[in-house]
Amino acid sequence: MSDAMAADRPVLEAEHVTRVFDVSRPMLARLMAGEKKRMLRAVDDASFAIRRGTTLSLVGESGCGKSTVARMAVGLYAPSAGAMRFEGCELSAARRDAALRRRMNMIFQDPYASLNPRWRVRDIVAEPIRAFRLARGAAVSERVAELLVQVGLSAADGQKYPHEFSGGQRQRVSIARALASEPEFLVCDEPTSALDVSVQAQILNLMKGLQERLGLTYLFISHNLAVVRHMSERLGVMYLGRIVEMGKAEAIFSKPQHPYTRLLLEAIPDLEMVGRARTPVGGEVPSPIAPPPGCAFHPRCPLAREKCRSVRPETARAGEVEVACHAVAEGWG
């Protein structure tokens, strides 16, 4: 997977990445109550690679670790174990190098929180240009105007403050800002989940158009499988910090293998489901602080056997995709 030729080298590579958060109470309170440290394993042994000009999506429910992966991918968090490589260069080293750092950027979920409310839009968009000294003087305003037009706003919108825009327009501003550093790789953390559907379509179309035109590579995080299907070449399904199924998006959608992937696809309300009754899968996502032993999905899994309760399934190739499931590996799925 990682020995590809340099020209065909993945833009971003994660090798057995794990991220643990200390979520215990403050030291004094903890010692007085005699508690142990509480560790949250937000991401557990995740590996993936993103090829240039393509989109890898990570889907999962809240708490599955997908946003943590997104933040690790741009260096906001360092992995507790394993390694991330950007353009073949270890990520924290890549982050220290402005020339490499410039080539990655991020689009956030909440268009109301991702723009500084006290800044004018032109300054928000210009910040990366100034930070990387990509232009100076009047050239900055020209570039800002160009970026605003590129995302479907007008140059005059730079005068305004974020609160003067609707959610969809703000997300356009976020995209303009993300593009301002002339990146090749964008991490998109649920970029449309705060938007209304008709606006979501506009933003998704815009993002796809930009990808084609600028040859961008996306790491796309979402909980919405339909959006993910629309956007991505490859797909990873996460559950409690692990990537349980990963492969070509089309392959997963046409033949989901992991029981959790099947549950997710089954659970999504769909327009095609008019009036159809279905049997929802029971159970809830367990706490990531104390995940179940063995396969973390076993308490909800219809296929679970004794082995699933004790032995953690390794990721293994199953047809076109990779799946971490005993049932799939041993053929009782």
Partner: peptide, 13 residues
């Protein structure tokens, strides 16, 4: 914890 601060951190401010 707001995203605009993270956005600034991502570009290395």
């Amino acid at each position: 914890g707001r995203e605009y601060v993270m956005a600034a951190r991502v570009i290395g401010i």
